[in-house]
């Protein structure tokens, strides 16, 4: 799969990442190389094979709906890069 700079830009936006020109060029090259290598899987016939979606053998894990211990406001905010009374503070959403 040949990745172009436009695709790098689009995927970077979806992943909330950004790259400078040099970084984008390197990412383009690496992604192309790795995806080409991953495409080996097309050599395998998987007609009629169900994709596997869970690796755990546990099913329907249920429990009683009981009140448990929860973090206090103070503790929940302890790691916040920026806070304002009882809230996480973030920059303006719209300019």
């Amino acid at each position: 799969m040949k990745i172009d700079l436009n695709t790098v830009k689009k995927i970077a936006h979806l992943a909330r990442l950004e790259f400078d020109e040099e970084g984008a060029e390197k990412m383009k090259k690496d992604m192309t190389q790795i995806l080409d290598w991953e495409e080996q899987l097309n050599e395998i016939d998987t007609e009629g094979v169900e994709p596997i979606t869970t690796m755990s053998s546990e099913e329907n894990v249920l429990r009683e709906d009981v009140v448990g211990e929860h973090l206090t406001h103070e503790k929940a905010l302890l790691n916040a890069p920026q806070r304002d009374s009882d809230y996480f503070r973030v920059p303006k959403v719209l300019e």
């Binding site: 790098v8 995927i11 979806l14 992943a15 992604m31 097309n42 094979v49 994709p51």
Partner: peptide, 27 residues
């Protein structure tokens, strides 16, 4: 690099060709 590749293989146009294919080979 891994976040970018992961986002790519999960993106709408490539999901089946990469992600679902790998889930089948995993089985």
């Amino acid at each position: 690099r891994r976040i970018m590749l992961g986002t790519f293989v999960l993106s709408a146009s490539y999901y089946d060709a990469y992600f679902t294919k790998a889930q089948k080979v995993r089985r």
